[in-house]
Simulated scan of single mutants.
Amino acid sequence: MIRKRSITLHGHRTSFSVEDAFLDELRTIASERGLSFAALIADIDEARPLDSNLSSALRLFVLRDLKERHQRP
């Protein structure tokens, strides 16, 4: 199920919509990296291309992370 979430990034409220599975994975990644959930989202937001939306950037980040983990020996 897709859920809309609100978060404050750089002092501004914004929202994103992702499926629960992506949200769970983002929380796991944040924990494994020793980051707060908000810090991870802020990092992803800062790195995303200007022509992409935050929701897409979050999904693509999770996909890249999972692919990298799969490729590790």
Rank of each mutant, 00 (worst) to 15 (best):
S15K: 09
R27E: 10
T14C: 08
V18H: 10
L66P: 03
S56P: 00
E32W: 08
E68Q: 10
S17R: 04
S6Q: 11
L35V: 02
P49W: 04
V18M: 09
F16G: 00
S31G: 07
T8F: 07
L40T: 07
K4A: 10
E32F: 06
L9I: 13
K67V: 10
K4L: 07
I7V: 15
A30S: 12
L58K: 10
A47K: 14
R69P: 02
L40K: 06
G34R: 02
E25C: 13
K4T: 01
L60Q: 10
R59V: 13
R59F: 02
R72V: 12
D51S: 01
D20N: 08
S6V: 08
A39F: 14
L26I: 12
E46D: 13
L66D: 03
L54D: 01
I2D: 13
L58I: 03
I44D: 11
R64D: 15
L23A: 06
H12E: 03
I29T: 02
K67W: 05
R13Q: 08
V62F: 05
E68L: 12
L50Q: 15
T8A: 05
R27Y: 04
A57P: 00
L26N: 00
F22C: 02
S52P: 03
D24Y: 04
V62N: 01
L60E: 09
P49Y: 05
Q71D: 15
N53Q: 15
P73Q: 15
A57F: 00
G34S: 05
S56C: 04
F22Y: 11
E19C: 15
L63P: 08
